[in-house]
Deep mutational scan, measured.
Amino acid sequence: TGIVNVSSSLNVRSSASTSSKVIGSLSGNTKVTIVGEEGAFYKIEYKGSHGYVAAEYI
């Protein structure tokens, strides 16, 4: 489990890349469940599926 540490919002992406499609966003202080790690990204549970967020902001 981690907490989103941004002042505005954090993009949730379809894969572990900044060039991948943005599938949603999370606001600051949102609690997320981390299920894996790929490079600089965490794989998280997101809306019944999975998404990827930049690990530096969690």
Rank of each mutant, 00 (worst) to 15 (best):
Y46N: 01
N11G: 08
V32E: 00
S49C: 09
V6E: 06
Y46D: 01
S17R: 07
S27C: 15
V12T: 01
S8C: 15
H50Y: 15
E45H: 07
K21H: 10
E45M: 11
G51I: 03
T30R: 05
E37Q: 15
I3W: 14
T33I: 14
S17T: 09
K21R: 12
S49Q: 12
T18K: 13
K21Q: 10
R13P: 01
S14A: 15
G51S: 02
T1C: 15
G51W: 03
V53Q: 00
I44Y: 01
G28H: 14
E37M: 15
I34E: 00
S7G: 11
S27D: 11
K31D: 04
A16M: 04
G28N: 14
T1L: 11
S49A: 13
S17D: 12
I58A: 02
H50I: 14
R13M: 15
V32K: 00
E37T: 15
A54S: 10
K21N: 10
G48L: 05
L26V: 09
G39P: 02
E56D: 08
S17C: 09
V22P: 05
N29I: 06
G24V: 03
I23W: 02
V12L: 02
N5H: 09
S27M: 13
A54M: 14
G39L: 05
N11T: 13
I34W: 04
I34M: 03
I3N: 06
H50A: 07
S27P: 15
I23N: 01
E45C: 13
E56K: 13
A54Q: 15
R13Y: 15
V53A: 04
E45N: 07
G36V: 04
V4E: 03
R13C: 10
V53D: 00
S7N: 11
L26Y: 02
N29D: 08
V53G: 01
S8H: 15
G28D: 08
G36I: 04
I58L: 06
V35N: 03
L10V: 15
K43D: 03
E45W: 09
T30E: 12
G28Q: 11
S17H: 09
H50Q: 06
I34G: 00
T33L: 09
K31G: 06
L26E: 00
K21S: 11
A54T: 08
K47M: 14
I23H: 01
G48S: 07
S19N: 13
V12M: 02
T33W: 10
G39W: 04
V35S: 04
S8E: 12
E37C: 15
L10I: 15
I44Q: 01
K47Y: 09
I23E: 01
N11L: 15
N5R: 12
E56M: 11
K47A: 12
A54V: 13
S14G: 08
S27H: 11
I23F: 02
Y46W: 11
T1E: 11
N11R: 13
S19I: 09
T30P: 03
S20L: 02
K47W: 07
K31S: 09
S27A: 14
A16E: 02
S9N: 10
E37P: 05
A55Q: 14
Y57M: 08
T18S: 14
A16D: 03
K47R: 09
V22W: 05
G28L: 10
I34D: 00
S49W: 07
T1I: 14
A55T: 10
K21Y: 08
E38Y: 10
S19C: 13
H50L: 10
S15Y: 07
V35P: 01
N11Q: 14
S19T: 13
G24A: 04
V32Y: 03
G2K: 06
K47D: 11
A40S: 10
Y42P: 03
V35F: 06
K47P: 02
S49H: 10
S20R: 04
V53M: 02
V53Y: 02
G51V: 03
I23M: 07
A55V: 12
S20P: 01
L26D: 00
T33V: 13
K31C: 14
S19A: 10
S27Y: 09
V53E: 00
S7M: 11
V4T: 07
I3D: 04
Y52P: 00
I58N: 02
K31Q: 12
E45R: 07
I44D: 02
N5I: 13
T30D: 10
K43A: 05
S25D: 06
S9R: 13
I3L: 10
E38H: 08
S9G: 14
T18L: 14
E37W: 14
S15I: 06
T30W: 07
G48H: 06
A16S: 07
Y42I: 09
S20D: 03
H50T: 10
K31E: 10
N29Y: 14
S14K: 12
G2V: 08
F41G: 01
G36S: 09
R13E: 02
T1V: 13
A54K: 14
E56S: 08
S20G: 14
S8P: 13
A16L: 04
N11K: 14
I3G: 04
Y46E: 01
G48D: 09
T1N: 09
L10N: 02
S9W: 11
N5K: 12
E37D: 06
I3K: 07
H50D: 06
I3R: 10
V32R: 00
Y57Q: 07
K21W: 07
K47H: 10
N29H: 12
S8R: 13
G28Y: 13
S8N: 12
A40I: 10
K31T: 12
S14H: 10
Y52T: 00
I23D: 00
A40F: 09
S27N: 11
K31F: 11
S17Y: 05
G51L: 02
V35T: 07
I34A: 00
G24K: 01
V12N: 01
E38T: 07
V12S: 01
N5S: 09
L26R: 01
G36M: 06
S9Q: 11
T1R: 10
T30G: 05
E38C: 13
V35W: 06
Y52M: 01
G36Y: 05
S8M: 12
N5F: 07
V35Q: 05
G51R: 01
V12D: 02
S9F: 12
T30Y: 06
N11D: 15
I23Y: 01
G36Q: 06
Y52W: 12
H50G: 04
A55I: 15
R13I: 06
A55W: 06
A55H: 07
V53T: 01
V6F: 08
Y57R: 06
V6M: 08
G51K: 01
G36N: 06
S9V: 11
V6R: 09
N29F: 14
A16I: 05
G51Q: 01
V4D: 03
E56G: 07
N29L: 11
N5T: 11
I58G: 01
Y46K: 00
G24P: 00
S15F: 08
A55E: 04
G48E: 08
A54F: 14
T30V: 09
S25Q: 14
G24L: 03
S20N: 02
S7R: 12
S7Q: 11
G2I: 08
I44G: 02
I44F: 01
G24F: 06
E45D: 08
V53F: 02
A55L: 08
E37S: 14
V4M: 05
V22L: 07
A16G: 06
E37G: 07
T30A: 11
Y42R: 03
T18H: 15
T30K: 05
T33F: 10
T1K: 09
G39R: 05
V22I: 14
Y52H: 01
S49I: 12
S8W: 12
S7I: 11
G36F: 05
Y52A: 00
A54G: 07
R13S: 06
S25E: 11
S25W: 14
A40V: 09
I44K: 00
I34K: 01
L26C: 04
I34Y: 02
G48Q: 07
S8V: 12
I34T: 00
T30F: 06
S7P: 11
T18F: 14
S25G: 06
L26H: 03
S15D: 10
T33E: 06
S20T: 06
H50R: 04
V53K: 00
Y42D: 03
T33N: 11
A55K: 15
V32W: 02
V6A: 10
V4C: 07
V35R: 04
V22Y: 05
A16K: 03
E45I: 13
I44W: 00
K43I: 14
K43F: 05
E45V: 12
